[in-house]
Amino acid sequence: MRAYFTTIWESVSTLITGMAITWRHMVNIRKGSVTLQYPEERWPRPERDIGFDQGEYNVIRSRLHVDMDDCIGCLKCERVCPVDCIKIETHRVDKGEDIPDVGHTGITSNGTKKALLVTRFDIDMTECCYCNLCTYPCPEECIYMTGGPNSEKHQIDYEFSQYDRNDMVYRFAKETSEEQVAIATGENGEKK
């Protein structure tokens, strides 16, 4: 009999304790609300005091971007990608020469002379796993995730959604016809 009433008492008291907690949350909603009104309010990028050279530490995971003027076509990013979402095709050209016809600059912003013409640099963002592995080996730091240290150059885009699946394949290289490539490569015309 005693246990019977103890059980009832325990039930009532613990249930009311729970109700008191939810009540407290309900009346303090103005202080406690954590909702972000998404399309109007965006998730703020965390305030990051890195304290060292930001160029080396690309602390963001977002969509990839390639500065094609700096790409030397070394294929390091393609090789390191664990899901094979990067595809690069290159052709041998004269070292360090600008070829304006196909949008090729001979010298990168770091001063490296390019020996390869990149005719194709595709990244399939539907397959990208945002592991950030491709940005580290890049010798020219031309592939990076947007919104990080280079956010002045490229606004952060949360959604980067598309209506067509094929639009998620980002083609960074300038479109070139075979003749253009043939002219540009000249006698070095073998495909690499």
């Binding site: 965390p46 305030e47 990051r48 690309n58 602390v59 963001i60 995971r61 796993c129 945002y130 592991c131 950030n132 592995l133 995730m145 990080g148």
Partner: peptide, 15 residues
């Protein structure tokens, strides 16, 4: 997850 994002940029799959 915010702390993780602060540290390594990712919220769920960190590498």
């Amino acid at each position: 997850l915010d702390i993780f994002e602060l540290t390594c940029g990712a919220r769920l799959l960190y590498n």
